[in-house]
Amino acid sequence: MTKYTSLLFIAGLSFLLFVIVGYLPIAENPMVAGKAILGSAQQEVGSANIVTSVVLAYRGLDTLGELSILFAAASVVGLLLGKSYSTDSVKTQKSGQAKEYKQFVVLKSLDLLFPMLLVVGMYIIVHGHLTPGGGFQGGVLLAVAFSMRSIVNPGSDKKNHYSITFIEGFAGFSFILIGVLALITDGNFLQPLLGKGEFGSLWSAGTLPLLYLAVGLKVGAELAGLLFELNGEEERV
């Protein structure tokens, strides 16, 4: 009975969605806020990538909220899985070293990939206001670079959780600090400071590159911690 009700609901929803989309002005919507932002972003913020100026300048407070949501998710995952993670690290240390010979090719190719991942990640983060990309994408690359070796070979990671926590806290603190500095000097939270610079060069758009660097470090540290947590022992029933 529940099945038929669900099917009926899905059929009705699909009918509703298709009819609504049929009446939408497809590809010609008025874009009230978008037009205003497109017209004034180059003078007000000075970043070539307008999506970046929306994410960090016009809606910077939302990005702060998003970072806090990600932090909450990562800490709840740590809360749910923390116990099994801390106990089996000593046990697998020896078997990890023995396994190293078995996975020679994958481990060596990951060692070759590691500096490339770091360079690409930092490039994506630092050029976030000029080209597509930014803190989130580069942060994912950094997280993968630092956690990939321990995922392939679970015994070999040093598990320096302390430095991850430190980087995460430092990045979040510096994000808020830049915002509060803007609040003190300019009167608005997260207002871009330091002048706009030459349009299109690396040192332009005020504090946006610094903010994106903080976002990238924070996202990278959080996701790396998340991957370390999830990479635990198999669940025994």
């Binding site: 990951l110 990939l113 690409v120 994506i124 080209t131 690359l141 993968v144 990939m148």
Partner: peptide, 23 residues
């Protein structure tokens, strides 16, 4: 040239995903 970065990121990270599935 803006779309070249996407290809770069995608090719690097797809390798990582496939390695995890192979594990």
């Amino acid at each position: 040239s803006l779309y070249l970065d996407i290809a770069l990121v995608y090719s690097v990270l797809s390798f990582v995903g496939i390695v995890a599935l192979a594990k």
